[in-house]
Simulated assay, not measured.
Amino acid sequence: MQIYLPVADLPVNILLVLAMGIAVGFVSGMFGIGGGFLMTPLLIFIGISPAVAVASVSSHIAASSFSGALSYWRRQAVDPALAAVLLVGGIMGTALGVWLFSFLRSLGQLDLTIALSYVVLLSAVGGLMLWEGVSAIRRARRGEAAMPRRPGSHVWIHGLPLKMRFKRSKIYLSAIPVVTVGALIGFVGAVMGIGGAFLLIPIMIYLLRVPTGVVIGTAQVLTLTTMAMATLLHATTNHLVDAVLALILMVGGVTGAQFGARAGQRIRGEHLRLLLGLLILSVGIRFAVELVIPPQEIFTLRETGTSP
């Protein structure tokens, strides 16, 4: 059953797009991540332009993050002060990312930039997660316990100036790395169409030493705000948000997430990390293959948005 996407300007099989939304929602529910790193490539692989895919998935991530952020807020599992400082950087990073997105699109280099970004980022992150997952499984088989992080341990980041006290997280930390992390996540999200939770959560836990009890909720607030802002900017400046596509993905994503959350509770943590690493790495390899395979059509026609 075909449906026409007005902004993407092509017909797609609605059942295929719905199935993609369910599958990505399942993965998101299982691993506790946004799923944008998977949804955007899948849309590109079925023929939707990278620009429309990134902009439309941003709206999907913002909508899916709303319920999660609200739930964690009600449970007081969000650090408001930490979220506010992250948002300072996140808003700046998102604005810069959308500007670069528009600039690269005007030059005709946006598609290549997005593909290269996915190859580098997903291959690196997927490889590290795969290695860590395999190491954890080996330690478990040998009966070795993982080395716990010592309470109160510090790294060089904790010696930076402009320190703030984040009461709910119970940490005393410079605002500089927090703003920087927020800017990085906002920038990456605007350019690549990913929420960035699979990057943000490890950074907050292992680099900023934020307690795990408030990490996910605080990350959800940042993802919600930056993706909502990216959607607004993409819609007003680039006119690339396809509401029909985003709606179908939302329906599928909400449905799949319910089943994924149940499945994730039955799998051991190290196995989950191994599976997630394999998934991320496979998407990065798929993009790398696309870059080296000769295209079926040598020439393409694309509107640049410039007036004669």
Rank of each mutant, 00 (worst) to 15 (best):
A228M: 14
L173M: 14
L276A: 01
I3L: 15
R302A: 13
H154R: 15
V221D: 01
A190T: 03
P308L: 11
Y118I: 11
L207G: 10
L10Y: 02
A81S: 12
I137M: 13
A228S: 15
G196H: 08
V244A: 12
V119L: 02
Q2S: 15
H154Y: 12
V119R: 05
S71V: 12
T94M: 02
G90L: 07
P50M: 10
R168N: 09
R165D: 12
L128W: 07
I171P: 06
M227R: 08
F101H: 12
S123K: 03
L18F: 04
M227V: 04
I203H: 06
A95V: 15
L128K: 15
Y4Q: 10
T225A: 15
L199M: 14
P294S: 08
R266F: 00
R74W: 01
G186L: 05
R286C: 12
I298D: 14
V7D: 11
R165M: 10
V181H: 01
P295F: 01
G126C: 04
V155K: 11
P177C: 09
R139I: 06
G256E: 09
L86D: 01
S56K: 04
N13G: 05
I33G: 03
R302W: 05
E297P: 03
G133K: 09
A115N: 09
A140G: 05
Y172W: 07
Q265Y: 05
H154P: 03
R75P: 04
F287K: 05
A136Q: 11
A95M: 13
V134L: 15
I114D: 07
V78P: 00
G217Q: 00
V17H: 10
V178Q: 03
G47S: 12
V179Y: 05
L200W: 00
T231W: 01
L86Y: 03
L16V: 14
I176P: 00
L160V: 07
T113E: 06
A230C: 09
P50Y: 06
G21C: 06
V155G: 15
G34T: 08
F287S: 01
G196T: 01
S58H: 04
H239T: 10
A183H: 08
S71T: 14
L200Q: 01
I14M: 14
